[in-house]
């Protein structure tokens, strides 16, 4: 991915030198033409086109903001309820992610989403121990939410 981005920047600069147009507009035109060239030459790269990965990253960001707002609505409901009748609990969540940055990203996302805070990552980094604020109905819902997060992270990191 980094190689493709650098290649695209170099192509944009080459375009600027060729047209001797050293402005932001010239750079953007060169960048777009570089993307077209990369799409034409995609079968020579080992990994995916980096455009897809940027798109996946954008999707992950949007999903994250949606979940953050939902999490706050849920905390608001729990805090302002006249009777505190939630049932907190710890549960284990087995993850399929392997690299360290993926696990860090997943735990940050879980911490900022509805009703869950990551408390412990097991030593072999295969299980996350999560504290849930209300265990009754949330367990399945949380599983689906985190499956969507895990899937989105896998989509970003897939080569």
């Amino acid at each position: 991915m980094a190689f493709q981005m650098i290649l695209n920047f170099v192509l944009a600069f080459v375009w600027m030198f060729l047209s001797s147009n050293y402005t932001a507009t010239g750079f953007i035109i060169g960048f777009i033409m570089g993307i077209l060239l990369l799409i034409l030459m995609r079968r020579f790269f080992k990994s995916r086109l980096y455009v897809y990965r940027l798109w996946a990253l954008l999707n992950l960001t949007l999903l994250f903001f949606k979940e953050l707002i939902l999490a706050n609505v849920q905390v608001l409901k729990v805090v302002l309820k006249p009777k505190l009748d939630m049932q907190p609990a710890f549960f284990a969540y087995p993850t399929v992610l392997t690299q360290d940055w993926e696990i860090t990203l997943l735990s940050s996302l879980i911490t900022l989403t509805p009703g869950t805070v990551v408390v412990h990552v097991s030593d072999d980094a295969k299980t996350l121990y999560v504290h849930a604020i209300d265990i009754n109905d949330v367990d399945e819902a949380i599983a689906s939410i985190r499956d969507s997060f895990e899937k989105a992270i896998l989509e970003v990191s897939r080569s």
Binding site: L84, P88, L112, H131
Partner: peptide, 17 residues
């Protein structure tokens, strides 16, 4: 909220937003 763990829910999410 009653204990450290539930308080951390309120602290992390709401203060971030």
């Amino acid at each position: 909220l009653p204990d450290v763990y539930t308080r951390s829910h309120a602290a992390t999410k709401s203060s971030t937003l």
